[in-house]
C-alpha cells in the first residue's frame, strides 16, 4: 500500500458511528443533521475555502453543500464513506461557484505559464505550514483547484479531470505548473 492510499484511508475511516446519524438525517432529524455538520463542517469548509479563496463565499458554498446533502441523503448508497460523498458535493459546489465568478469577471489567470515549466531547486526551501498555506491561496484559480484536489484532497488525475471537465493530461500539467509556481512564490517570500 502506497503512502498516498494509506493517507486516504486514514482520512476516511469507515464510519460506523455515522450510520445512525445518516439514517436520522434522512428522516429529517435536526439533531442528527447537526451531529453530521459538527463532524464534517471544518474539513468541508477548508476544502471550499481553498477552491473559492474567499471566506464569505466559502461559507456560502459550505451551507449549500450541507443543504444539498441533507436533501439528497437518499442518493448516498454507502459505496464510499459519508465524508468522501460529502466532499464530492462540496468540491462540485465550490467549482460551480468558481465558474460563475469566472464568467462574471472573465479572469484569465491561468494562462501565464512561462516560468512554471522548470522546477525551481528545492535546496534552500524553508517550509512552514502557514507560509505554504498562504502561497497556495496566491495561486491562480485553476492551478489552486487542481493542486489542492490532488495533494490535499487525495483525488487522482482521472478523478480531477472528471470533476473539472478537463482532460487528464491537462490536470497533470496544471498540477506540475501549480507546484512549480508555488515553489517560486515560496522562494520570493524568503528573499
Amino acid at each position: 500500500m502506497s503512502l498516498r492510499q494509506e493517507m486516504i484511508k486514514k482520512e476516511h475511516p469507515q464510519p460506523d458511528d455515522t450510520r445512525p446519524l445518516i439514517t436520522g438525517s434522512m428522516k429529517g432529524d435536526r439533531s442528527s443533521q447537526y451531529a453530521l455538520y459538527k463532524k464534517y463542517s471544518k474539513a468541508m469548509y477548508n476544502i471550499c475555502y481553498r477552491i473559492v479563496n474567499d471566506q464569505e463565499e466559502a461559507r456560502d458554498v459550505l451551507q449549500e453543500t450541507f443543504i444539498s446533502a441533507f436533501q439528497h441523503m437518499g442518493a448516498f448508497r454507502g459505496e464510499s464513506s459519508f465524508g468522501a460523498w460529502l466532499k464530492k458535493i462540496a468540491v462540485n459546489q465550490a467549482i460551480n461557484h468558481l465558474r460563475k465568478r469566472k464568467m462574471l469577471y472573465e479572469s484569465v489567470d491561468d494562462i501565464e505559464y512561462s516560468d512554471e515549466e522548470n522546477s525551481p531547486d528545492e535546496e534552500n526551501l524553508a517550509l512552514n505550514v502557514e507560509r505554504v498555506r498562504e502561497a497556495i491561496q496566491q495561486l491562480p484559480d485553476g492551478f489552486r483547484t487542481v493542486f489542492s484536489l490532488y495533494l490535499l484532497e487525495g483525488y487522482d488525475h482521472s478523478e480531477i479531470a472528471r470533476i473539472m471537465s478537463i482532460s487528464e493530461s491537462t490536470s497533470k500539467t496544471q498540477y506540475i505548473r501549480a507546484k512549480n509556481k508555488l515553489k517560486t512564490i515560496l522562494k520570493e517570500r524568503i528573499s
Partner: peptide, 15 residues
C-alpha cells in the same frame, strides 16, 4: 494543519 479555518458559529443557523 492545512485545515486551519473554521466556518463560524453562524453557519449552522443559516443552514
Amino acid at each position: 494543519e492545512f485545515d486551519n479555518k473554521l466556518p463560524g458559529d453562524k453557519s449552522w443557523d443559516d443552514i
